[in-house]
Amino acid sequence: MANAFSYSCRDCEGMEACPASVVAETKDEVWKLMQLHAQVAHDENPADWDNETRDYLSTLIKPVSV
């Protein structure tokens, strides 16, 4: 089994109703997809995320086996 990483938006505090999730080969790819999702679905600008927010979001990226 190959390793990958996942992120589910519903795991983020305040986003429990959002069904979006991503799985990718690398954490970097997951971050890019998270940022795109935040822009498109939640009208957020990831450039505005402070270090505390980024640190919190990084804890929501989980290793998975595919």
Rank of each mutant, 00 (worst) to 15 (best):
M1K: 11
M1N: 14
A2D: 04
N3L: 14
F5N: 05
S6G: 00
S6M: 13
Y7S: 06
Y7A: 11
S8A: 15
S8L: 03
S8Q: 13
S8F: 05
S8D: 11
C9M: 04
C9Q: 01
C9I: 09
C9W: 04
D11K: 06
D11R: 12
D11T: 03
C12M: 10
C12E: 10
E13Q: 14
G14E: 01
G14H: 02
E16R: 14
E16L: 07
A17W: 08
A17F: 07
C18Y: 02
P19Q: 07
P19D: 11
P19V: 07
P19K: 10
A20N: 06
A20R: 10
A20V: 13
A20K: 04
V22Q: 02
V22E: 00
V23T: 05
V23L: 11
A24F: 08
A24D: 11
A24T: 01
T26S: 11
T26Y: 00
K27H: 03
K27Y: 04
D28I: 01
D28L: 13
E29V: 02
E29K: 04
V30A: 02
V30L: 05
V30E: 00
W31M: 08
W31D: 03
K32L: 15
K32H: 15
L33I: 15
M34T: 13
Q35N: 13
Q35L: 07
L36I: 14
L36F: 08
L36Y: 08
L36H: 12
L36N: 09
H37I: 14
Q39A: 12
V40I: 15
V40A: 14
H42R: 03
H42L: 10
H42S: 10
D43H: 11
D43N: 11
E44D: 05
N45S: 13
N45D: 15
N45L: 15
P46I: 06
P46H: 06
A47E: 07
A47W: 02
D48W: 10
D48F: 10
W49M: 06
W49G: 04
W49S: 03
N51D: 15
N51H: 09
E52P: 03
E52H: 09
E52C: 04
T53V: 13
T53C: 06
T53L: 00
R54A: 02
R54F: 01
R54K: 12
D55C: 08
D55I: 09
Y56E: 00
L57D: 02
S58I: 00
S58C: 01
S58Y: 05
S58M: 03
T59G: 02
T59V: 03
L60C: 08
L60P: 05
L60I: 06
I61C: 04
I61S: 01
P63Y: 00
V64C: 06
V64I: 12
V64R: 05
S65R: 07
S65Q: 11
V66I: 15
V66S: 08
V66F: 07
V66A: 05
